[in-house]
Amino acid sequence: MPANTKYELKMGAATREAFGKAVAELGKEDPRIVVCDADLSKSTMTTYFAKEFPERFFECGIAEANMVALGAGLAMTGKIPFVSSFSAFVMTKGFEQLRTTVAYPQVNLKVVGTHSGISIGEDGPSQMSIEDLSLACNLPGFTVLCPADEATMKAAIRWAAYLDGPVFLRAGRVKAPVIYPADYEFDFSKAVQLIEGTDVTLVGTGLLTAECIKASEELAAEGISARVIDVICIKPLDVETLAKAAKETGAMVVAEEHLVDTGLGSRVAQALASTTPAPMEFIGVENCYAESGTPDGLLDKYNLRAPAVAAAARRAIARKNG
């Protein structure tokens, strides 16, 4: 992004909404696009596609394992299938199918897990996916995307559709702050530097990218120059951009709405440990299941907010200077 970009972070559509509209739009252009859902189309927003193209929409009922392998079969006839459900269900109940029937033979299936993270709110932990990025990254050959806002998701769906190979896309339930202009030209092979900075780098993904932007403003008021990077593509990871940031700022924070042990943070740490080690701090869900509550209340309580990111940045800087 241009260095002088100001982020107002106005509320935009939820990334699940952006997915639903994007896949319906794509369906108009390309008859190969088909969609499968497991009785959650009104929540995953595949309902837009279902209404427009009932013959290309496959309602699978509450049976995610069948849905994943069925989608693989559709792909094997040259279709471009998007299978969707809550991430907590499709990635766990469908995981073995994703492993053996999709990843192993490299079937061209696109999986969209919605309602990821703890920000789904009131429904509670049984519906919250806090391990999906890790599971998806454990599927060799999968491309794993975690878009932060509406524009990103819209572009990511189109890009994923024509990428030859399996893709997992992570979507959220709640409205997401707008980071990118609607006409932004994404290069999904690159992590995006949103804000220039020299003292520390804040690496975010999904909803936490906006929190990193807010944290950088908080740190700026203290005279700390924080770089902000949005990682859209979790796998393959843009190690070059991250290593450059580690080298130039010497301290890193990774923030995600995911189990802190096994998500983006661990991938970044592994990549930097073998290239440009730097003091690192991690923001994420800490070895627990959350609870019911408002999305905002949960993000506050589980320390997935800008103040927690800023505090982590100060710790990382202290270690760099210590």
């Binding site: 392998a69 693989a72 079969g73 559709l74 094997m76 006839t77 029937t101």
Partner: peptide, 12 residues
């Protein structure tokens, strides 16, 4: 499941 997916694709 795979066979049914292929069958559905063929029907389309």
């Amino acid at each position: 499941s795979l066979a049914l997916g292929i069958g559905c694709g063929m029907k389309l």
